[in-house]
Amino acid sequence: MDIGNILLLALGEFLTPTTAAYGLAALGLAVHFGYSGLLNFGQAGFMAIGAYGFAISTLQFKVPFIVGLLIAVVAASLFALLLGVPTLRLRADYLAIVTIAAAEIVRYIVTTNTLFRITGSADGLSSFQREFDTFNPFPAGTYIFGWSNRDFYVRVISWAVVILSAVIVWLLMRSPWGRVLKGIREDENAVRSLGKNVYSYKMQALVIGGILGALAGLLFTIPRGSVQPANYATDLTFFLWTVLLLGGMSTVLGPIVGAMIFWAVLSLTQNLLSGLIESGAVTFISTVQAGQLRFILVGVALMLLMVYRPQGVFGNKKELAFA
Protein backbone atom coordinates (compact mmCIF):
# COMPACT_ATOMS: atom_id res chain seq x y z
CA MET A 1 0.00 0.00 0.00
CA ASP A 2 1.39 3.35 -1.04
CA ILE A 3 0.09 6.12 1.20
CA GLY A 4 1.60 8.85 -0.94
CA ASN A 5 -0.11 7.54 -4.00
CA ILE A 6 -3.42 7.21 -2.22
CA LEU A 7 -3.14 10.84 -1.14
CA LEU A 8 -2.32 11.86 -4.68
CA LEU A 9 -5.35 9.99 -5.95
CA ALA A 10 -7.50 11.79 -3.43
CA LEU A 11 -6.01 15.14 -4.42
CA GLY A 12 -6.65 14.29 -8.04
CA GLU A 13 -10.35 14.08 -7.24
CA PHE A 14 -10.36 17.82 -6.56
CA LEU A 15 -10.30 18.71 -10.22
CA THR A 16 -12.23 15.96 -11.99
CA PRO A 17 -15.18 17.02 -14.15
CA THR A 18 -17.36 14.89 -11.86
CA THR A 19 -16.35 16.96 -8.85
CA ALA A 20 -17.14 20.06 -10.90
CA ALA A 21 -20.53 18.59 -11.77
CA TYR A 22 -21.33 17.80 -8.14
CA GLY A 23 -20.22 21.29 -7.12
CA LEU A 24 -22.40 22.92 -9.75
CA ALA A 25 -25.45 20.79 -8.94
CA ALA A 26 -24.98 21.54 -5.24
CA LEU A 27 -24.67 25.24 -6.11
CA GLY A 28 -28.10 24.89 -7.69
CA LEU A 29 -29.33 23.39 -4.43
CA ALA A 30 -27.78 26.31 -2.57
CA VAL A 31 -29.85 28.68 -4.72
CA HIS A 32 -32.90 26.56 -3.94
CA PHE A 33 -32.51 25.78 -0.30
CA GLY A 34 -29.66 27.86 1.07
CA TYR A 35 -30.89 31.16 -0.31
CA SER A 36 -34.60 30.62 -0.97
CA GLY A 37 -35.61 27.87 1.45
CA LEU A 38 -37.00 25.64 -1.31
CA LEU A 39 -36.69 21.94 -0.50
CA ASN A 40 -35.67 20.40 -3.79
CA PHE A 41 -35.12 16.66 -3.40
CA GLY A 42 -35.11 16.07 -7.13
CA GLN A 43 -31.85 17.66 -8.26
CA ALA A 44 -30.89 14.30 -9.80
CA GLY A 45 -33.94 14.75 -12.03
CA PHE A 46 -32.74 18.15 -13.20
CA MET A 47 -29.32 16.67 -13.96
CA ALA A 48 -30.93 13.81 -15.88
CA ILE A 49 -33.09 16.25 -17.83
CA GLY A 50 -30.01 18.24 -18.78
CA ALA A 51 -27.95 15.19 -19.74
CA TYR A 52 -30.70 13.43 -21.67
CA GLY A 53 -32.01 16.65 -23.20
CA PHE A 54 -28.60 17.23 -24.68
CA ALA A 55 -27.85 13.62 -25.60
CA ILE A 56 -31.22 12.92 -27.24
CA SER A 57 -31.31 16.13 -29.21
CA THR A 58 -27.75 15.59 -30.38
CA LEU A 59 -28.18 11.92 -31.33
CA GLN A 60 -31.79 11.92 -32.55
CA PHE A 61 -32.10 15.31 -34.16
CA LYS A 62 -28.44 15.89 -34.96
CA VAL A 63 -28.62 19.44 -33.64
CA PRO A 64 -25.42 21.43 -33.26
CA PHE A 65 -23.77 21.49 -29.84
CA ILE A 66 -25.02 24.92 -28.89
CA VAL A 67 -28.62 24.04 -29.75
CA GLY A 68 -28.35 20.85 -27.70
CA LEU A 69 -27.09 22.95 -24.80
CA LEU A 70 -30.01 25.35 -25.17
CA ILE A 71 -32.47 22.47 -25.33
CA ALA A 72 -31.04 21.07 -22.08
CA VAL A 73 -31.43 24.45 -20.38
CA VAL A 74 -34.93 25.04 -21.71
CA ALA A 75 -36.02 21.51 -20.76
CA ALA A 76 -34.78 22.02 -17.20
CA SER A 77 -36.59 25.36 -16.98
CA LEU A 78 -39.82 23.79 -18.16
CA PHE A 79 -39.36 20.98 -15.65
CA ALA A 80 -38.91 23.56 -12.89
CA LEU A 81 -42.05 25.43 -13.98
CA LEU A 82 -43.99 22.19 -14.11
CA LEU A 83 -42.96 21.33 -10.55
CA GLY A 84 -43.27 24.85 -9.24
CA VAL A 85 -46.78 25.64 -10.42
CA PRO A 86 -48.57 23.13 -8.18
CA THR A 87 -46.24 23.27 -5.20
CA LEU A 88 -44.77 26.70 -4.64
CA ARG A 89 -47.96 27.97 -3.05
CA LEU A 90 -48.03 25.03 -0.63
CA ARG A 91 -46.10 24.08 2.46
CA ALA A 92 -42.39 23.47 1.94
CA ASP A 93 -42.51 19.70 2.37
CA TYR A 94 -44.91 19.31 -0.55
CA LEU A 95 -42.20 20.61 -2.87
CA ALA A 96 -39.82 18.04 -1.36
CA ILE A 97 -42.18 15.14 -2.07
CA VAL A 98 -43.15 16.35 -5.53
CA THR A 99 -39.56 16.95 -6.64
CA ILE A 100 -38.33 13.58 -5.41
CA ALA A 101 -41.29 11.91 -7.15
CA ALA A 102 -40.75 13.85 -10.36
CA ALA A 103 -37.05 12.96 -10.43
CA GLU A 104 -37.96 9.31 -10.07
CA ILE A 105 -40.53 9.63 -12.86
CA VAL A 106 -37.78 11.02 -15.09
CA ARG A 107 -35.52 8.13 -14.20
CA TYR A 108 -38.23 5.53 -14.82
CA ILE A 109 -39.00 7.09 -18.18
CA VAL A 110 -35.41 7.12 -19.40
CA THR A 111 -34.98 3.56 -18.11
CA THR A 112 -38.06 1.98 -19.66
CA ASN A 113 -37.53 -0.41 -22.54
CA THR A 114 -40.50 1.06 -24.32
CA LEU A 115 -38.39 4.07 -25.24
CA PHE A 116 -35.26 2.07 -26.01
CA ARG A 117 -34.81 3.72 -29.41
CA ILE A 118 -34.75 7.18 -27.88
CA THR A 119 -33.15 6.74 -24.49
CA GLY A 120 -31.23 3.53 -24.84
CA SER A 121 -33.08 2.39 -21.69
CA ALA A 122 -30.81 0.90 -19.01
CA ASP A 123 -27.72 1.10 -21.23
CA GLY A 124 -28.16 4.80 -21.72
CA LEU A 125 -26.69 6.78 -24.58
CA SER A 126 -23.18 7.50 -25.69
CA SER A 127 -21.08 9.27 -28.32
CA PHE A 128 -22.95 12.54 -28.13
CA GLN A 129 -19.82 14.47 -27.14
CA ARG A 130 -18.10 14.34 -30.53
CA GLU A 131 -18.88 17.87 -31.58
CA PHE A 132 -17.84 19.12 -28.16
CA ASP A 133 -14.51 17.39 -28.64
CA THR A 134 -13.96 19.10 -31.98
CA PHE A 135 -13.88 22.46 -30.18
CA ASN A 136 -10.82 21.34 -28.23
CA PRO A 137 -8.24 24.09 -28.82
CA PHE A 138 -5.42 22.24 -27.10
CA PRO A 139 -3.09 20.27 -29.38
CA ALA A 140 -2.38 16.67 -28.50
CA GLY A 141 0.19 16.27 -25.76
CA THR A 142 0.51 16.08 -22.02
CA TYR A 143 -0.62 18.87 -19.75
CA ILE A 144 0.13 19.84 -16.16
CA PHE A 145 -0.47 16.61 -14.24
CA GLY A 146 0.05 14.44 -17.26
CA TRP A 147 -3.44 14.95 -18.53
CA SER A 148 -4.11 14.28 -22.18
CA ASN A 149 -5.25 17.24 -24.21
CA ARG A 150 -8.85 16.09 -23.91
CA ASP A 151 -8.59 15.61 -20.13
CA PHE A 152 -7.15 19.08 -19.89
CA TYR A 153 -9.84 20.48 -22.17
CA VAL A 154 -12.80 18.97 -20.26
CA ARG A 155 -11.32 20.16 -16.97
CA VAL A 156 -10.81 23.68 -18.23
CA ILE A 157 -14.34 23.84 -19.60
CA SER A 158 -15.93 22.20 -16.53
CA TRP A 159 -14.30 24.52 -14.07
CA ALA A 160 -14.85 27.55 -16.26
CA VAL A 161 -18.56 26.76 -16.18
CA VAL A 162 -18.47 26.26 -12.41
CA ILE A 163 -16.54 29.46 -11.74
CA LEU A 164 -18.74 31.50 -14.07
CA SER A 165 -21.87 30.12 -12.43
CA ALA A 166 -20.48 30.80 -8.96
CA VAL A 167 -19.74 34.41 -9.87
CA ILE A 168 -23.22 34.87 -11.30
CA VAL A 169 -24.84 33.36 -8.22
CA TRP A 170 -22.70 35.56 -6.00
CA LEU A 171 -23.67 38.67 -7.94
CA LEU A 172 -27.33 37.70 -7.85
CA MET A 173 -27.34 37.04 -4.15
CA ARG A 174 -25.78 40.37 -3.16
CA SER A 175 -28.36 42.23 -5.27
CA PRO A 176 -31.76 43.41 -4.06
CA TRP A 177 -33.17 40.40 -5.93
CA GLY A 178 -31.13 38.10 -3.71
CA ARG A 179 -32.24 40.06 -0.67
CA VAL A 180 -35.87 39.33 -1.48
CA LEU A 181 -35.03 35.62 -1.79
CA LYS A 182 -33.28 35.60 1.58
CA GLY A 183 -36.31 37.31 3.03
CA ILE A 184 -38.59 34.64 1.57
CA ARG A 185 -36.35 31.93 3.02
CA GLU A 186 -37.20 33.22 6.47
CA ASP A 187 -40.77 34.39 6.27
CA GLU A 188 -42.60 34.63 3.01
CA ASN A 189 -45.66 36.30 4.49
CA ALA A 190 -43.55 39.15 5.78
CA VAL A 191 -42.07 39.60 2.30
CA ARG A 192 -45.56 39.48 0.80
CA SER A 193 -46.71 42.16 3.21
CA LEU A 194 -43.98 44.39 1.80
CA GLY A 195 -45.38 44.13 -1.72
CA LYS A 196 -43.12 41.50 -3.28
CA ASN A 197 -44.54 38.78 -5.49
CA VAL A 198 -43.20 35.83 -3.49
CA TYR A 199 -44.51 33.18 -5.87
CA SER A 200 -42.70 34.69 -8.81
CA TYR A 201 -39.42 34.97 -6.89
CA LYS A 202 -39.62 31.35 -5.75
CA MET A 203 -40.29 30.28 -9.31
CA GLN A 204 -37.29 32.24 -10.58
CA ALA A 205 -35.09 30.64 -7.93
CA LEU A 206 -36.40 27.18 -8.76
CA VAL A 207 -35.67 27.70 -12.46
CA ILE A 208 -32.18 29.10 -11.89
CA GLY A 209 -31.18 26.29 -9.52
CA GLY A 210 -32.68 23.80 -11.96
CA ILE A 211 -30.67 25.21 -14.85
CA LEU A 212 -27.51 24.87 -12.77
CA GLY A 213 -28.56 21.25 -12.16
CA ALA A 214 -29.02 20.66 -15.89
CA LEU A 215 -25.60 22.17 -16.66
CA ALA A 216 -24.17 19.92 -13.97
CA GLY A 217 -25.79 17.00 -15.78
CA LEU A 218 -23.82 18.01 -18.88
CA LEU A 219 -20.56 18.31 -16.94
CA PHE A 220 -21.31 14.88 -15.53
CA THR A 221 -21.86 13.19 -18.90
CA ILE A 222 -20.05 15.01 -21.69
CA PRO A 223 -16.52 14.33 -20.39
CA ARG A 224 -17.19 10.61 -20.23
CA GLY A 225 -19.33 10.59 -23.36
CA SER A 226 -22.11 8.48 -21.95
CA VAL A 227 -25.20 8.77 -19.82
CA GLN A 228 -26.82 5.95 -17.87
CA PRO A 229 -30.10 6.21 -15.97
CA ALA A 230 -28.80 4.29 -12.95
CA ASN A 231 -26.62 7.28 -12.12
CA TYR A 232 -29.62 9.54 -11.55
CA ALA A 233 -31.32 7.73 -8.69
CA THR A 234 -32.42 9.56 -5.53
CA ASP A 235 -29.11 8.65 -3.93
CA LEU A 236 -27.45 11.16 -6.23
CA THR A 237 -29.71 13.90 -4.87
CA PHE A 238 -28.87 12.86 -1.33
CA PHE A 239 -25.15 12.93 -2.08
CA LEU A 240 -25.60 16.44 -3.45
CA TRP A 241 -27.32 17.44 -0.22
CA THR A 242 -24.36 16.01 1.69
CA VAL A 243 -22.03 18.06 -0.50
CA LEU A 244 -24.13 21.18 0.10
CA LEU A 245 -24.24 20.71 3.86
CA LEU A 246 -20.56 19.84 3.96
CA GLY A 247 -19.55 23.14 2.41
CA GLY A 248 -22.23 25.41 3.79
CA MET A 249 -25.63 25.93 2.26
CA SER A 250 -25.89 29.70 2.13
CA THR A 251 -22.53 30.28 0.52
CA VAL A 252 -21.28 30.28 -3.04
CA LEU A 253 -17.95 28.58 -2.40
CA GLY A 254 -19.39 26.07 0.04
CA PRO A 255 -21.00 23.68 -2.44
CA ILE A 256 -17.89 23.67 -4.65
CA VAL A 257 -15.45 23.01 -1.83
CA GLY A 258 -17.98 20.56 -0.40
CA ALA A 259 -17.84 18.57 -3.64
CA MET A 260 -14.04 18.53 -3.53
CA ILE A 261 -13.99 17.29 0.05
CA PHE A 262 -16.71 14.73 -0.70
CA TRP A 263 -14.86 13.13 -3.58
CA ALA A 264 -11.44 13.37 -1.99
CA VAL A 265 -12.70 11.64 1.16
CA LEU A 266 -14.53 8.98 -0.85
CA SER A 267 -11.41 8.28 -2.88
CA LEU A 268 -9.24 8.30 0.22
CA THR A 269 -11.38 5.84 2.17
CA GLN A 270 -11.87 3.57 -0.83
CA ASN A 271 -8.19 3.38 -1.64
CA LEU A 272 -7.08 3.12 1.97
CA LEU A 273 -9.55 0.32 2.62
CA SER A 274 -8.70 -1.62 -0.51
CA GLY A 275 -5.03 -1.03 0.21
CA LEU A 276 -5.46 -2.43 3.71
CA ILE A 277 -7.47 -5.37 2.42
CA GLU A 278 -4.99 -6.24 -0.30
CA SER A 279 -2.03 -5.98 2.03
CA GLY A 280 -3.79 -8.38 4.37
CA ALA A 281 -4.06 -5.90 7.23
CA VAL A 282 -7.82 -6.04 7.08
CA THR A 283 -9.37 -9.43 6.54
CA PHE A 284 -12.90 -9.15 7.81
CA ILE A 285 -14.29 -7.22 4.86
CA SER A 286 -14.05 -7.63 1.12
CA THR A 287 -13.21 -4.92 -1.39
CA VAL A 288 -16.84 -4.87 -2.43
CA GLN A 289 -17.88 -4.28 1.15
CA ALA A 290 -15.29 -1.53 1.41
CA GLY A 291 -17.16 0.28 -1.35
CA GLN A 292 -20.38 0.04 0.63
CA LEU A 293 -18.69 1.10 3.82
CA ARG A 294 -17.94 4.44 2.18
CA PHE A 295 -21.60 5.09 1.58
CA ILE A 296 -22.48 4.08 5.11
CA LEU A 297 -19.98 6.76 6.10
CA VAL A 298 -21.66 9.28 3.79
CA GLY A 299 -24.96 8.65 5.57
CA VAL A 300 -23.40 8.94 9.00
CA ALA A 301 -21.54 12.09 7.93
CA LEU A 302 -24.77 13.65 6.71
CA MET A 303 -26.41 12.99 10.07
CA LEU A 304 -23.47 14.24 12.09
CA LEU A 305 -23.15 17.38 9.96
CA MET A 306 -26.80 18.17 10.40
CA VAL A 307 -26.65 17.67 14.14
CA TYR A 308 -23.31 19.22 15.02
CA ARG A 309 -22.31 21.59 12.24
CA PRO A 310 -25.34 22.52 10.16
CA GLN A 311 -23.60 25.58 8.76
CA GLY A 312 -20.97 23.42 7.06
CA VAL A 313 -17.30 24.26 6.65
CA PHE A 314 -17.81 27.79 5.36
CA GLY A 315 -21.25 28.74 6.53
CA ASN A 316 -22.11 31.41 9.02
CA LYS A 317 -24.34 29.91 11.67
CA LYS A 318 -26.24 33.17 11.99
CA GLU A 319 -27.23 32.96 8.33
CA LEU A 320 -28.41 29.36 8.34
CA ALA A 321 -31.46 28.64 6.28
CA PHE A 322 -33.02 27.07 9.33
CA ALA A 323 -32.58 27.75 13.00
Binding site: L9, P17, T18, W147, R224, G225, A230, N231
Partner: peptide
Protein backbone atom coordinates in the same frame (compact mmCIF):
# COMPACT_ATOMS: atom_id res chain seq x y z
CA UNK B 1 -0.62 6.40 -12.79
CA UNK B 2 -2.49 8.71 -10.49
CA UNK B 3 -3.10 10.93 -13.45
CA UNK B 4 -4.35 7.95 -15.37
CA UNK B 5 -6.78 7.30 -12.58
CA UNK B 6 -8.04 10.84 -12.60
CA UNK B 7 -8.24 10.87 -16.33
CA UNK B 8 -10.25 7.72 -16.38
CA UNK B 9 -13.77 8.92 -16.84
CA UNK B 10 -14.29 8.52 -13.14
CA UNK B 11 -16.35 5.54 -14.03
CA UNK B 12 -16.65 3.68 -10.82
CA UNK B 13 -16.31 6.60 -8.51
CA UNK B 14 -19.10 8.51 -10.15
CA UNK B 15 -21.59 5.70 -10.09
CA UNK B 16 -23.82 6.79 -7.28
CA UNK B 17 -25.21 3.36 -6.67
CA UNK B 18 -22.27 1.33 -5.60
Amino acid sequence: LAVLMIAAPAAQATTPSP
